[in-house]
Each structure stands twice: as C-alpha cells, then as structure tokens.
Design a binder for these strands. Structure first.
Lengths: 257, 257
DNA sequence: CTCATCGCGATACAGTGTATCGAGTGATAC
DNA sequence: GTATCACTCGATACACTGTATCGCGATGAG
C-alpha cells in the first residue's frame, strides 16, 4: 500500500506554516484586504487565506466576524493622532475632525462601519475621552452636558459628511473613471430628470456649483458647526439637552456620541 | 405507474397564486420585513416568499438586490412630508430634519442605508430639491454655493446624529431589555474600564449627563448647526467652499449632499 | 386545434458565517 | 525512551445568501 516513495506524496500538512497568529495580525490582514478591495473582500475565509491559515483558525482569536470588524474600527481610531491637551478648543476639534476624515480617506470602508454600532474598543474610548477633554473645563462649557452636546454635534456632522463624501467618491470612480462632472458620470438618467425642469435647484447645483474641492466643503460645514457652538454657548443661561426647537416625539434612548 | 389516485398527489403547481406582482408590492413587502426584523430579514428569497412567489420572480421587477434597497430608501423619502414653500428657512430645515429622524425611528434600517450611496430616486430628488428650495432665493444665501453649503451641513449632521442615535437604541434593546443605564446594559466591561480612572470624562458622561431625551439632544445639535449657519452667513463677504480652517489633503471629489 | 411565446420557478453555483469533530502534534509524566 | 494527555488546527458540514441558466407549462395567436 505504501510502495510509493515518500517524496511523491505531498508533504504531510503537519506544519505547513504554523505562523504564530495573533489578533493584531488578523486585524492587520483584514484592514489590508479592506483597503485594497473594499469591505466585502473581508471574509473569514479570505482573511485566513491571506495569513496562510484555515478559516476556523481565526475563531480562536475572534469570537465572530462582527467582532473582527469592531477591532478594525478600533485599530483605525488608534491611527488618529490627537491634539495635545491645552490646544484651543476650536483648533482641537478641527484637528480631530480632519483626523477622522483623513482616516476615512485612507480606509474608505470605515464609513460603512462608523456609527453603525457604538464603538467601545480601547482606542475608540481614548479617542472620545480626549475629544471630551478638549472641551471639559473651559468656561464656555460649564457642565458635562455642554461638553457632550458640542462633541456629539461635531461628531455627528463629521460622520455624516465623511460618509456622504466617501459614498460619492466611490460611486464616481465606479461609474466612469474620473469623470469630472456628476451628471456625465451618472449617465443619461440624471440628464433626463433635469430636462423635465422640475428640479431647478438641483440643476443649478450641478451646473453652477463648485465641485472641485471636497476638503473645502468639509471645512465649510465644520465651520458652520463650530461657529454655531461658539455662538450658542455664548448666550447666557443656555442649557443643552432640553431646548427643543419644535415638539418632537419623546424618546427614552440616550444620545451619547 | 400512475395507480395512485390523483387526490393523493400534490396539486400541480400550475397556478398556485399568480398574484400580479409589481415593483411597489415588492418594495412594500421588503419594507415590512425590514421594519419587523431588521435589514437582514430582507433577502430575495424571503421577500419573494412573503409575496407567495419564487425568488427569481423578483428579478423581473428589480435588477439586483441593491436596487431593491435603493427603492426602499426612496419609498421612505416619499413618506417624509415637506414644509410648504414660504416657510421661514430655519423652521423649514428643522421640519425636514425632524421628518428624517421620524422616518428613521419608524424604519430603523434606514440608517444603514442613508448616505451609504447617493440617493437618486424620484422621491429622494424631490426631497432634496425641496430642501434646497427652502433656502434658495433668500438674501442670506445669495448663491447656490451658499445654499448647498448650508443644506449639505444640515443633512450631514442629521444623517450622523440619527445614525448614532439609532445605533445606540438598537444596542440598548439588544443587550438587556430596556436597561435604563448605558453602563448597566453594557455589562461589567465598561464598569471595569471606567474603574481604571483613565476615562474621567467618559465616567462623568455616564454618571452625570442627561440620558433621557434623545429628541432634545437631537434638537440641541440641530440648533448648534442652524445657529452656525445663521451666524456665518451674516458675516459680510463670506463665501462657502473655499474657506479651509486648516490645510487639508486636497481632493477632487465633489461633496454635494 | 396547433403552434409559438413567454413568464415562472426549480435547479445550480459560488460564496458566506460558523458548529462540529477527528486527526495529529507538542508537552508532560513516568 | 515511552506513553498519555490536552490541545490546536483545519476538513467537513449546514444553512444561508445573490444570481445565471434553462426547461416546463400555461396562455395567446392563427
């Protein structure tokens, strides 16, 4: 039965490459895959293959795929350099916002995960702790509610703006490589829609508006938000968390950042 | 070979229920499923089954699953009532923001889709056209760039805020039914983390901050943003899209809403 | 009545996350 | 040196997913 010479049989898989694995290695490989091919390049099988391991091996280091995604997000949070304490709060928040935007440009898949679920990894917690710290203790933000309101608002804006920006950039490079005009890339559909004349402002946006500098648009919105915070906190006696502009369905869900 | 009586054989599936299908019926069924069980209850097979049809039948009405998701989003945009023209711009934007938030509370899956890709359905387009219209022509917004900057900022905030709020509400009701304290719901992990003392502001947020009224927090942030827009546009000679607070990586991607 | 058309869904395929479990390895005990 | 144990790994399996293909069967036309 074993007449065949040993060298003809495939090497027993006893130890093909028992690379010592680790959570960090796994997360790193997953991030690399996601950076190259988007989030759906991140599957347990593909990450494992990228590490020369069987799929099931990963489950020794990671409970579930969602946990792996959480770890990826936390890793990216760790990349974001935080402003040193003592910086002017506007400058500090601006730096943080730019840091998040830059991270999302480096890792476009981040926007699919940002805000999708609460981030509680160590880097995420340090990040938000530092963000809160940039406002805490300043006279403009006397209570933690003031701090939370401002930080939550800026973060909400940043998340939404970055997500929109990345989504459009993605679609732009998906349909028609580097077409500079939105309508050209979007094909005849938008042209037909606009031709109906029922969307005059949309038409204006596409034909007249400035479409070249996403970073500047981001900063414009960020300035709006920061100006609003500065202006509002300047009003004496103002308190956050209780001033509803219009009645809205009450809810018991907390709205932390 | 055919000795068995006919009534013992299952009825030939000639015409079990050839319900006349339509895109609207499909989208409606998909929305119902998503409302009840979240987005991953929406699969081609399940939607088809809910309509008493075979899976492949749907592909006569819908090109791909992503298109179905787009149609769902557009349908929800159609539910959002728009302010009548002529309303004060702050009130109008506030109503629109509340409309989106209310829609997201009715259809929590919406936040997983909002901003994930550009929305170009008819309802989405009328929605944004109307939103632009609330600002277009006002003296505070002399150019379409001013309009776009303000609308884009408000939308970015709304998307981000709603997404964060829904994500937290989801997780709250997932882990520990109706636990009123974040830290209690999140189990011993957060308690341990906070016990290290390295996150004093986070601890303050969880122990001292107001956690009861998500709607009020949403309005607080919205007021920040609207105040910022009002304050900024009041400055003479200010122009949007070009004022970068700090240098940032330039980009060629447009940043429309 | 016959033929053609076409809508429908059964089947198939490649992929997913993950539970189970058997094999084989290393370390440990004598 | 040998025997045993524990444990790690990955092959296999299962229930799903989105979607391409294709053959059946009913329906409409002549």
């Amino acid at each position: 039965m074993s007449n065949e010479p040993v060298w003809d049989r495939p090497e027993p898989p006893s130890k093909p490459s028992p690379t010592p694995l680790s959570r960090d290695l796994i997360v790193g490989a997953a991030i690399r895959l996601a950076d190259e091919g988007g989030l759906d390049e991140v599957s347990i099988r593909k990450v494992a293959a990228a590490l020369g391991a069987g799929p099931m091996r990963l489950y020794g280091y990671v409970e579930t795929k969602d946990e792996l995604l959480d770890l990826m997000v936390d890793e990216v949070y760790g990349e974001i350099t935080l402003p040193e304490p003592g910086t002017d709060w506007r400058a500090a928040l601006t730096r943080i916002a730019h840091g998040i935007r830059a991270a999302a440009k480096r890792h476009p898949w981040l926007v699919d995960l940002l805000g999708g679920r609460p981030h509680r990894g160590p880097n995420s917690l340090t990040h938000i702790e530092a963000t809160l710290a940039t406002l805490d203790g300043r006279p403009e933000f006397p209570t933690i509610d003031h701090v939370l309101g401002a930080v939550g608002t800026v973060m909400a804006y940043v998340h939404g703006a970055v997500r929109n920006e990345i989504a459009e950039a993605r679609e732009e490079q998906a349909s028609g490589m580097t077409e500079e005009q939105w309508q050209a890339a979007s094909g005849p559909y938008m042209r037909k829609v606009l031709a109906t004349g029922r969307f005059p402002r949309l038409a204006k946006v596409m034909f007249e508006a400035e479409h070249t500098n996403a970073a500047a648009w981001f900063d414009t919105g960020l300035d709006y938000v920061l100006n609003g915070i500065a202006a509002t906190t300047r009003s004496p006696g103002w308190r956050p968390g209780g001033s509803a502009t219009a009645p809205s369905a009450p809810s018991t869900a907390p709205a932390g950042p």
